[in-house]
Nucleic acid binder design. Structure first.
Lengths: 344, 344
DNA sequence: TGCACAGAGCGAAACGTTTCACTCTTGGGA
DNA sequence: TCCCAAGAGTGAAACGTTTCGCTCTGTGCA
């Protein structure tokens, strides 16, 4: 039916040339009289730029691809929210792809976004090697990682100081007088390994040996948290404090604890890594290592937008030295609840 | 540098015409020998279709726009996950836009997606009137709503039976012997109003009058839940049971309860509307009205995909009667925890 | 042997922009 | 008064596909 108006219709209506109208659309200088004419025509015709035609010529889409390992969790979607805000301010839209924790799908996502000619990408990766990024790098699309670095890839990653924060979390337990400290964590992703590292380092530094049964290493899942906590509580000598490696583990562990006869913090103290919102639900309120999600998103978005800007200026001739930026590591913050008891 | 290969490079390499190669790309019939030639060339050149050029000609993008009122919550992003799965299966990608609970931004999002020439839209709206959808409807883009209908708009909405489920939830409290029943809810969105309606209807049907102070009507926010619960507990005669209208309200209310000396369920019983996952954290486990998120997403995606299919077949000549579909209403399910005590 | 027809391939136009290189106009300084 | 530069506008080519209407080839049947 009524096909969308094009620049040609404006030309017919105003008598101006395509080039002039294009100039107007892209913010060039025009005689006020012509400017007015065009504006009237646009209003009357309800003209809207056809982004595909524009994209075809400029090979820019004003779209940023965001690839996340799993979209259905609070960590991810809060980041998405903040990222979205930044991009929108800068005139970019976000195209969000969920990898569903599957490396194959992640690789597909990258290819898909390359085809869509996104101008840049933010990625929270599933894979542990940078190979899957090749299509993007080949197409000269700037990439910024979040949360999980790809070691040795030379691709910048914005993340939290997992190691140091976990160290501090365990230090807190230690300073409260705890010696029988258990750790439920994951060694499946870098993030988890870094957190484990931090925990083990503190124990080592304090020469606070713990039995192997206190070390529950699996993946970041509700199940692992649930089972591990059950096992810990069943021990002849259960720990007096437990470090919970991420949101899902907290969820599972608290569930197991709630079903048991143990009380927090009188019987068992808890400190968790991740989300703030959940601490509202548990009683007592959990003490948590909280990631500065807003800062993480702001920095990642800023880094990417800056690159997009630079790429435009230097028209591709980017200094390879500048590309090889290291990680940007932000401090996490311990927010105290009342889930840690003092032991003397 | 190495510009992406185009169909023309394949032409040069194979000696075939552009039309033939295009035919190959779109699944037409070719001599095996030519098919092979093209495949070899594609592999060698790492050719990938330029979606913008294709889109310019076909004015199809194979992208579905998803506009959500707020991206940073479990309800939304779980839906996004399921929707994404369906769309991916059907060869579509999702472009997700966050309206941040702001009608202005929502209208911008619609315009943006129309410009991006998305093939269809799924919308969980902020606005209560359908006006903001005009750009999409004008451009003949099929739209399916979720969770919140736009009354009188004639646009299909996939949602849960808020009224009936809330009715049943209150009935459950009533059947457990509760008479002093309070309701914390929202009248800001249709969803909230429907739930309130259901609650009030049960009270009416049972001729179970409650004091005005038991009716806490505000918005779906943590704050409203928190403040309302505090106020209820401070009453001379507090309720024995409370209905919590959505996830955020549950969060706030449980927080207030945890800080008080009241115990659930001995002092006060709870039933909440929304998310399953949170019930794992609270102690005791909450009894909840749970929405069938997977079904909601499957149905919404199915409805939209079907329309896209039909539009293609009939090339625009859609029966206006068919467009004016009513809402698709799915039943929610009450999942019992142990947050309701028996009162006799 | 001739004919019709289906299948395969082709050339060129079209999609709606941007951009390059050019022309025209105007006004100010020498 | 003349000249020049800056500013404003223009026509045409280009971006990488799809698609329309056409031609060519070869097969099977009468």
């Amino acid at each position: 039916m009524n096909l969308a108006a094009t620049i040609k219709d404006i030309k017919d209506m105003t008598g101006l040339s395509l080039a002039t109208i294009s100039k107007y659309l892209n913010g060039g200088n025009l005689l006020p009289k012509n400017r007015e004419k065009i504006e009237r025509a646009i209003a009357e015709l309800h003209y809207e730029v056809n982004e595909m035609a524009r994209g075809l010529v400029t090979s820019k889409s004003k779209v940023i691809g965001v690839v996340v390992f799993d979209i259905a969790n609070v960590f991810t979607c809060t980041l998405l929210k903040y990222l979205g805000e930044r991009f929108r301010e800068a005139g970019y839209a976000a195209m969000i792809c969920d990898s569903q924790n599957d490396a194959q799908q992640e690789a597909d996502n990258i290819r898909f976004l390359v085809n869509k000619k996104v101008d840049g990408m933010i990625i929270i990766p599933v894979a542990q090697e940078a190979g899957f990024l090749e299509p993007a790098l080949k197409a000269d699309i700037p990439v910024v990682l979040m949360d999980r670095s790809l070691e040795g890839s030379g691709i910048a990653c914005v993340k939290v100081n997992n190691r140091e924060s976990s160290y501090q979390a365990l230090e807190m337990l230690y300073n409260y007088g705890h010696r029988r400290i258990a750790v439920i964590g994951s060694d499946r992703e870098l993030t988890g390994r870094e957190r484990l590292d931090g925990c083990l380092q503190l124990l080592k530094d304090k020469k606070n040996e713990i039995p192997a049964s206190y070390l529950k290493i699996g993946c970041h899942s509700i199940e692992h948290g649930y089972n591990s906590m059950q096992e810990l509580l069943r021990l002849k000598e259960p720990p007096t404090a437990v470090f919970l490696g991420n949101f899902e583990i907290i969820l599972g562990a608290v569930m197991a604890l709630n079903e048991s006869s143990f009380q927090c913090p009188s019987d068992i103290s808890l400190i968790g890594f991740d989300d703030l919102i959940i601490s509202n639900l548990s009683n007592p309120r959990l003490t948590l290592v909280v990631q500065p999600l807003r800062d993480l998103a702001d920095n990642a978005a800023g880094l990417l937008l800056e690159r997009l800007q630079n790429n435009k200026n230097t028209s591709g001739e980017t200094d390879p030295e500048k590309q090889k930026q290291g990680d940007l590591i932000l401090p996490a913050q311990i927010v105290e609840g009342s889930s840690i008891a003092r032991r003397l």
